[in-house]
Design a protein around this nucleic acid. Structure first.
Length: 213
DNA sequence: AACTCGGGGCA
DNA sequence: TGCCCAGAGTT
């Protein structure tokens, strides 16, 4: 007895959620891959609202690697303080920016391997950049995607690596990026970590979590 | 696997 | 006041 939905049921769930969130996309504001990379590094354990407030000011003057590295870690730290973990993030952003200048002609690389070599960039950040800046099919298993897919039964795993493998296997590739976004939207607005709003959830008929309650 | 980095928003 | 937020690096 498997504790996950059949492939056809997952398709139906995704169809419903795509209608619920027709314009689901990254809610980080950016106009270039570099801006998205920096915004995503800042978004670690921080709300997108706070990141957007910060980058609205930061990117006015510092929207390229060359401009960014004119800042000291202390100066950048003050500018991004409200995003939290500002010392670590500041050092990582400057190191990453220097690497982009030296190794990549100031451009953001577009592969998982190269992105995750950058300081402060892990699989989740890399996935967001690949998906949103380069339109490369990818699924980032953050806390929302992990919780929602496991609750509904799209995946059944005890860590994000397994969930990611299952999602890549059970969702068609051309649907990865869109699915990534709608699962996050659903997780933030309905399928919340605490007190999920099952009463307004349009996929609860499929949901293992809801039907087990 | 556990620990550290962290200010801001919200109940 | 306590808890959480589009995580990543080190030990």
């Amino acid at each position: 007895m498997s504790k996950h939905l059949k492939i056809v049921e997952i398709e139906e769930v995704l169809n419903i959620l795509e209608k619920d969130y027709p314009d689901a996309k990254a809610e980080l504001n950016f106009s270039t891959p570099y801006e998205l990379l920096i915004a995503t590094i800042l978004s670690a354990q921080c709300t997108d609202v706070q990141v957007n407030k910060t980058t609205a000011v930061l990117f006015k003057k510092y929207n390229t690697p060359e401009k960014m590295v004119t800042l000291s870690t202390d100066e950048l730290g003050k500018l991004i303080k409200s995003c939290g973990f500002y010392k670590t993030k500041s050092a990582n952003i400057l190191s990453t920016s220097r690497i982009l200048i030296e190794n990549y002609n100031s451009k953001v690389p577009n592969t998982m391997e190269k992105l995750t070599e950058l300081p402060g960039v892990g699989r989740k950040t890399a996935n967001v950049v690949l998906s949103n800046a380069f339109n490369i099919p990818s699924i980032a298993v953050d806390t929302h995607v992990f919780r929602v897919s496991n609750r509904i039964g799209i995946a059944n795993a005890d860590n994000v690596e397994k969930t990611e493998k299952q999602l890549r296997r059970r969702i068609k590739k051309d649907r990865w990026s869109k699915s990534h976004h709608i699962l996050i939207f659903h997780g933030r607005r309905v399928c919340k970590a605490r007190n999920p709003s099952c009463e307004i959830c349009n996929v609860r008929d499929y949901c293992l979590y809801y039907n087990k309650k």
